[in-house]
Nucleic acid binder design. Structure first.
Lengths: 336, 336
DNA sequence: TTCCCCCGTCGAAGCGCTTCGACGTCACGC
DNA sequence: GCGTGACGTCGAAGCGCTTCGACGGGGGAA
């Protein structure tokens, strides 16, 4: 193994000079730097990660905690992980993969052993058991998602309120006057993550702002429940022409139910959804939708962490603007 | 930060004794060990990963290189990654996530900086550019998949030949006498990974062994191609009642085509496939299939690596036995 | 011209751990 | 009864890097 002293000898300088040339933490003359760089290339020198970590108390590794829960859309997680790795590499860091399964103990382990400099935690719950630990840890972290109490934490997520608004704005723009939100299962509003409520807020606010008649309907994640909601909507809101769906598993059965009840999508009914692109695209009628921008979330999360590692202050909350992808499920309202 | 000297002082022993108590590399009296363990708990001691890596030249981290190519089934990759992490943790190791994108440079970097002790490389191609590097690296690796020349490497994968056989055996057991293999696109047999050929070998061997009439049909990954193949099969092999499909994207259109041509699955035609469970389950007619056992591959890959790290010899090739999951697409042949 | 300071470099002191050789003690065999 | 190991523990020497203080030399300000 070639080490820094070998490079130093070869370049005719001291080891510390090589170190400074590499890190840029002290000025080194152009000429000397050139010579050192040449030696490094010639000898094929690579600094030993462990030694570097020990001396500098920086491992240049980030931990990424990925969820395993059922109901998590796997391709989204993967896409996110890849974007984190890519962004980390751009910042000269590597990524250590942890599973939710390891729990708090895993977080504490990698932090306390100084294996990682910072942590990214996905799939944060409203009352996540890891929050106190994350606050107490001596290394920075970024959470994907917003817990109930986010004080002292740095969180990032899609701006679900804006997403709810955007869905409505789109429908309003197409001339729809009566809209409904088919939301997550009731229990999600009670104990899930906060995003469900935020969608409702945005939906309702935008509907009012646009003078639309609107209603909100939590919905179990079953085809039968979808069917029931569809019937109820037609019964109670016969003038309904726009639906926003924030409930992935229900999306397909719901559209099926509407069509069986004689409503064509998008002919009679326009549908927008908040769901992963894969889901929206995989349906018989591809659905106009807003996806969690996983690549952007990953990149931004890493950037936040880098700033924190640099000792900079970062905003506690980062909300990413929703982007709506137009597909086949939306159309202008039929002239009455 | 509490360090080993703190523990030593607290327990009234020397640092080296603490180290030996932890590693078990030298005998320590029961009583002393108890005392040390109590001190560790009381002080909340965690060995510093960097220091440990430097002193022992073992980082206890494995690299996992995941593919990004289009056409890779993401949930399978994820499942695999999770099983690697789980198995690694069981062996007191962590997992560093690398993307294919980083290429050879990435492998070299994590190996040469001693960031990782060993590597797992997914999605190995027949003539993978990384093979020479992997051979030259001073740390052990395990490849998922078999390249053309696997000498000097350790590889693991589903036994695709046995999988081809198993599909045929199953059909033969149900009384089918005329079978066909709808395989991968032609180019895969030329430059892809070796598994496509092995399926053909197994398919053919088992068909002969069972005295079946059989034929093999490479197939482009398009619905049109599927349709063409279906028509061709009916024309050329009117007595056909069993089909093995080794071509994920074609599976659904092929079954559709058969049904449009008047053949019910499984009434008139039994279908078995080699594809991920998610794909097999997601079809209108859930398909009896053999999946790549990703969880098992992950666990076994880690075990192989552990043995290599221990200096033990391991087999160059590990073939995992296929397991066929019975679903709705297979039935006994109709009495003629 | 003199003083000061900054630039570029060096030497040495760790960072926290593992590991090797050494040493005292005790039990056992002859 | 003494030699001989094995056992249990210690001390010290690194592992390869970063970083701090120091120092010589040169340029600008006074």
């Amino acid at each position: 193994m070639v080490k820094i002293t070998d490079v130093a000898r070869h370049a005719g300088v001291s080891p510390s000079t090589v170190s400074y040339a590499l890190s840029g933490k002290r000025p080194i003359s152009e000429e000397t730097r050139q010579r050192i760089e040449a030696s490094i290339r010639e000898l094929g020198y690579r600094p030993h990660a462990g030694a570097r970590a020990l001396a500098s108390s920086r491992s240049n590794v980030l931990a990424l905690v990925v969820p395993l829960r059922a109901g998590i859309h796997v391709p989204v997680v993967m896409q996110f992980a890849v974007s984190v790795v890519t962004a980390a590499r751009r910042n000269d860091h590597d990524v250590l993969l942890l599973t939710q399964e390891e729990g708090e103990e895993g977080l504490r382990r990698v932090a306390d052993t100084a294996l990682v400099d910072a942590l990214i935690v996905m799939d944060v719950q409203l009352h996540d058991a890891r929050l106190p630990l994350l606050r107490a840890l001596d290394r920075p972290s970024v959470l994907i998602g917003f817990p109930a109490a986010a004080d002292g934490l740095t969180c990032i997520d899609l701006d679900f309120k804006a997403a709810g608004e955007l869905c409505v704005e789109r429908l309003a723009g197409l001339g729809h006057r009566v809209v409904a939100l088919v939301g997550s299962p009731p229990e999600v509003y009670v104990r899930g993550t906060a995003f469900a409520q935020r969608v409702v807020e945005g939906f309702t606010a935008a509907a009012h702002r646009n003078g639309l008649s609107s209603s909100v309907h939590p919905c179990e994640a079953s085809p039968a429940a979808a069917r029931r909601i569809a019937e109820q909507l037609l019964r109670e809101h016969p003038a309904l022409t726009g639906v926003v769906v924030h409930n992935e598993p229900v999306l397909e059965p719901l559209i099926d139910a509407f069509e069986q009840l004689g409503l064509r999508v998008p002919g009679d009914l326009s549908v927008t959804a908040i769901c992963p692109d894969e889901v929206a695209e995989g349906l018989r009628v591809p659905v106009t939708s807003i996806a969690l921008p996983s690549a952007e979330v990953g990149a931004r999360a890493v950037e936040l962490l880098m700033r924190k590692l640099d000792g900079a202050d970062v905003p506690g909350a980062t909300l990413l603007a929703p982007r709506l992808t137009e597909r086949a499920s939306t159309a202008p309202r039929n002239a009455p």
